[in-house]
């Protein structure tokens, strides 16, 4: 084979235009596909949705259960209140903020401490139910956090995570308020 022919061939190949215009506009399909992908991304969170939803539904029924249990547990509460007078003063106002916020972390810790102190004021069956609800919320939080590790930009997952924080605070507050009224009544009597 004649090397000079290869040289001219190489030169001809190298001189070919690298750019060739497509016969049609491709961007609209690309943009639509990308947009669909962005919208579909939160679907990865679907397995966690039932858990989060279950937690919120459980909480909705919890408030009613706690109110109902107050009357039954007044005697027990009065006894325990006399044993733990400091607990009656431990109500902590909480405004939900991101967990990284120092004030939020401190307030949440105080509320959780009060929650744990007063949990024994509740009847065993109610107490077990509260604990189960708390476990459900924390499981949902862990599941959503794991999903967020995979898709940290998902606004839907962040919203679900914030929901679990709020649900946990709601649970603590419900127990706090319920037992507070029990303790107040026992103090008056």
């Amino acid at each position: 084979m004649n090397p000079s022919r290869f040289d001219s061939l190489d030169a001809a190949l190298a001189s070919l235009p690298r750019e060739v215009r497509p016969g049609r506009e491709l961007w609209p399909d690309i943009a639509r596909n990308i947009a669909d992908g962005v919208r579909q991304a939160p679907r990865a969170a679907w397995p966690q949705w039932p858990m989060a939803l279950a937690a919120s539904m459980v909480l909705a029924s919890l408030v009613g259960a706690l109110c109902w249990s107050v009357a039954r547990e007044r005697t027990t509460a009065e006894i325990l209140a006399r044993r733990t007078p400091a607990a009656a003063k431990a109500t902590v106002p909480v405004s939900l903020q991101l967990p990284q916020d120092a004030d939020y972390v401190a307030a949440r810790a105080a509320l959780e401490r009060t929650f744990n102190e007063r949990l024994d004021l509740l009847a065993p069956s109610t107490r077990d139910r509260v604990r189960a609800d708390l476990a459900t919320i924390r499981k949902a939080n862990a599941d959503i956090s794991a999903a967020l590790a995979q898709d940290p930009a998902s606004p839907l997952l962040w919203q679900l995570l914030r929901n679990t924080w709020q649900q946990e605070i709601n649970l603590y507050t419900s127990v706090d308020q319920t037992t507070q009224s029990m303790l107040t009544r026992s103090t008056r009597s």
Binding site: R18, V20, G23, R24, L26
Partner: peptide
């Protein structure tokens, strides 16, 4: 970059429709 990418895809596939699919 679309013209460069399409040019490469067209030369590798030899088919405009497939090159468009590949480019997308």
């Amino acid at each position: 970059h679309v013209d460069q990418v399409y040019g490469l895809c067209l030369r590798m596939t030899g088919q405009p429709a497939l090159a468009e699919d590949c480019t997308q």
